[in-house]
């Protein structure tokens, strides 16, 4: 191998090793729960005409990794999420077991709706790499 070839090899080795690791290593998260909090004062802000979204209008969860939606109502009034009325201080833990797109009525959203997309667990190397890239971008 030429001297230039060795330089290429030295540069590519860690990159290829990292890509291979990202494709094969199991994805681990500290918790399967994706926590979203409705902060204190949300209702008051809504009533004053503030339409800023406090929670994202769409949430993506992944089966087997973070497939449990955990909502916590820190506001001073009850908040409704889907079929559930969360009293002040109460939380609602909703697990998902099927890949799906779910629309929930949500009083904490200015649009009145929250979409929860549940994706299949990444199995193949390219799926894992894509998942890691998206997770890295969002964090």
């Amino acid at each position: 191998m030429s001297r230039r070839g060795w330089w290429w090899w030295a540069a590519l080795t860690p990159l290829l090793a990292v890509v291979a690791w990202a494709g094969f290593a199991p994805i681990k998260l500290p918790s399967r729960e994706a926590l979203f909090e409705i902060p204190h004062g949300t209702y008051a802000r809504r009533m004053s005409g503030d339409l800023v979204d406090i929670l994202p209008s769409s949430i993506t969860l992944t089966l087997g990794l973070n497939d449990v939606l955990l909502l916590r109502n820190l506001d001073e009034v009850p908040q409704q999420f889907g079929p559930t009325i969360m009293m002040p201080g109460q939380s609602f833990r909703l697990p998902f077991e099927v890949a799906s797109e779910n629309r929930f009525d949500c009083t904490a959203h200015s649009s009145g709706q929250m979409i929860v997309i549940v994706e299949e667990k990444p199995v193949w190397p390219w799926q894992k790499i894509r998942w890691r890239l998206r997770h890295w971008q969002n964090s």
Partner: peptide, 9 residues
């Protein structure tokens, strides 16, 4: 290096 990364994973 690909084998090394995969083996570590």
């Amino acid at each position: 290096p690909v084998l090394l990364g995969a083996a570590l994973a």
